[in-house]
């Protein structure tokens, strides 16, 4: 039992990592668009908290990334998404997830799977927070699962962003963060992606009058289509 040997601060990191996983599951089951954005914002905030705790336990340079994460993922991007949603008049949009229980069970299976995948790797690691890697992988896979199961473009983007959260968690937990330059670059990338997605939303909804990505599966529009 290695949890007992950890300091209280590291235990708290574990708790927050587990919370991030839980929030991913909540995202997976969430049918309301606006609530989904809120959950995503919370995930960003918890991620920032976890980063700050890791920073407090020694890696002080991570405070900057923690602040950056809080600013970007908990405040700025959710706000932008929210604005988009308001602009497209999707506030009351509810996307019912078919077979919700099944998808959730699939998610749980993904967690077990990612643990199984990571076990051989983590033996090599010596960091106390190594088990978090399997959680991060699970968050990444769950993000992908969200994108697979959802049809709504905005939800897919949220899934994509939460994948990025998982990667960031892995980076923070496993190597105490990437070099600041890389991190700034990634943060900038995510921001740009968010802006670009916003532009895409507008175009998609203008051209097909919906954000249902299932309607994008025709490769060419026949002439006689109204």
């Amino acid at each position: 039992m290695n949890l007992v040997q950890l300091s209280l601060l590291e235990q708290a990191v574990f708790v927050l990592a587990a919370l991030i996983l839980f929030l991913s599951f909540t995202l997976l089951a969430q049918s309301r668009l606006v609530s989904g954005i809120h959950v995503f914002a919370w995930q960003g905030a918890v991620l920032a908290g976890a980063t700050a705790l890791v920073a407090a336990s020694g890696a002080h340079h991570l405070f900057i990334s923690a602040g950056l994460t809080l600013l970007l993922k908990a405040l700025l991007i959710p706000w932008m998404l929210h604005r988009q949603v308001r602009k497209l008049e999707l506030e009351r949009h509810v996307e019912t997830l078919p077979h919700a229980a099944l998808v959730l069970m699939g998610g749980a299976a993904l967690v077990i799977f990612s643990y199984w995948v990571v076990v051989p790797i983590e033996r090599l690691e010596l960091l106390a927070t190594r088990n978090i890697i399997s959680l991060s992988l699970a968050v990444v896979l769950l993000g992908l699962l969200i994108m697979v199961t959802r049809r709504q473009a905005v939800t897919q983007v949220i899934g994509f962003m939460s994948m990025e959260n998982g990667l960031f968690l892995a980076a923070v937990a496993a190597t105490h963060g990437m070099p600041l330059v890389v991190e700034l670059g990634v943060a900038f990338d995510v921001l740009v992606a968010a802006v670009l997605f916003g532009v895409f939303f507008l175009h998609i909804s203008e051209s097909i009058d919906s954000l249902d990505t299932d309607r994008l599966n025709r490769l060419a529009v026949p002439e006689d289509e109204p």
Binding site: M1, N2, F25, A108, L135
Partner: peptide, 16 residues
């Protein structure tokens, strides 16, 4: 789901 996650995090994070 919460109970299941509790169990999984017990296995993954705590037992080692």
């Amino acid at each position: 789901l919460l109970a299941l996650l509790g169990l999984l995090s017990n296995v993954i994070l705590e037992a080692g």
